[in-house]
Design a protein around this nucleic acid. Structure first.
Lengths: 231, 231
DNA sequence: CGCGAGCTTGACGTTGTTCAACTAGAGTGG
DNA sequence: CCACTCTAGTTGAACAACGTCAAGCTCGCG
């Protein structure tokens, strides 16, 4: 499934860039000593919902999805991740279980850090803890938006939101080729695959977007924004 | 709207009981000096979505609702609160805005603590920060369940979940009189008032619950659990 | 060439909303 | 004491949104 290596220094890791700037050299050393690199192939499972949370993953390359496994084999994709993100989950600091499943959409390289070491670092460095609090709360705010989008918008609005999410947050371009299937798009928007396909066709017929296979382009952003608002 | 008083010592406050045990005397004193009591009447707004997050509220008595204001005057109730809870919100440690509205369902007594003082306390006490991280993540786990319930269950299942929530989490009894209206029940379950009423009638006709006005009783817990699971 | 997985389309049935009407109870003023 | 109003709750019928099922399609791959 994954080769175990330890080629890179921590300072090439995404942690160094964003979050770990507040750590002392000793703290960084301790983390560096308790980490290892794991490479996943597309479709492989990185973390499994219900399993113990023993490690934090830091993504160094690739795309993947974070999703909750619900009823009747239905999944709800919480977000797509890409490089320079780190994945812990709400089990951290609570029950140390994984509350979602994380899987690779492309080949993915990660750096696994021992959850206890991470926990101790937070425990001993309150500025770092404060940064973690901010990070978790930003996720929470995103979830609030997701609540409204998923419960109060019709399918057209939800698909519009998903397209904006992919364009603005993941690919940072109105012309993009997301690493997701139609089923994934449906799992992001809480509908069936067939419905997602129908909405895409509608938006295409409207000249709002162009879709060819997995190549998306936003043609009329104003119209798509209106659809997102009015549901 | 609310009288400003300062009768109680902090040690009668809910913080003392649950969360603030890790604080030193000096830290408690500082918080005590930067707090004041506010009493709200039923239906009054305690925090307003979109406003600045200047204070943390600690509920000393009463019931209220925490909800997101969405589109077309539709609300989504995230949870009901009662005494001995504290309400901060995901704006804490991030943008210091309120991302939900909090309002009183009954008369509510609160203790307001200055958000900056609270922030500083977290900043200077990493054990306390760790407790906050755990608290926030527990909320996050609850939100995950809510995601699945709201997006993957049919109306019967969602109402069943709401009844269990009220019975088990709020009133801790199968026989209870919740402080919420039919519209509130609808806002908890992401459906219309009319639909909520119809489902209640179904469950009543099934002998699964009894409903008389605002008095609820779970008659057949096993049946209700099955409805919750199978949607 | 044929196979299989993901994609697409249409017909149909179910779920859930909208709208309108009606009811019951709680004030409120004459 | 009686209209009157106002709000929350309730019900029914028409309608729209959405899912299900089945069939056919496309395209890469052995």
């Amino acid at each position: 499934m994954a080769e175990i290596t330890k080629n890179l220094r921590c300072d090439r890791c995404c942690f160094k860039q964003e979050i770990f700037t507040l750590l002392s050299d000793e703290e960084m050393d301790r983390i560096n000593q308790n980490r290892y690199e794991v490479n996943f192939k597309s479709h492989e499972t990185i973390f499994k919902q219900g399993a113990a949370l023993t490690h934090i993953a830091c993504i160094t390359s690739g795309f993947g999805k974070i999703y909750i496994e619900g009823f009747n084999n239905k999944n709800l994709i919480l977000r797509i991740f890409k490089e320079n993100e780190f994945i812990g989950g709400p089990g951290m600091y609570t029950d140390f279980m994984m509350h979602y499943t994380v899987s690779a959409l492309t080949d993915v390289s990660t750096c696994f850090i021992d959850a206890r070491v991470f926990y101790d670092t937070v425990k001993n460095n309150s500025a770092f803890a404060l940064q973690m609090l901010g990070h978790i709360n930003r996720m929470g705010i995103q979830n609030f938006n997701k609540f409204i989008n998923l419960t109060q918008k019709h399918m057209h609005g939800r698909i519009a939101d998903a397209i904006f999410y992919l364009a603005d947050r993941i690919h940072e371009s109105d012309d993009f080729e997301p690493p997701i299937s139609r089923q994934d798009l449906a799992d992001m928007t809480a509908m069936t695959k067939e419905s997602a396909i129908r909405i895409l066709k509608d938006l295409k017929d409207n000249q709002t977007i162009s879709v060819e296979g997995n190549h998306f382009r936003i043609l009329n952003r104003a119209a798509l924004e209106k659809i997102s608002r009015t549901g």
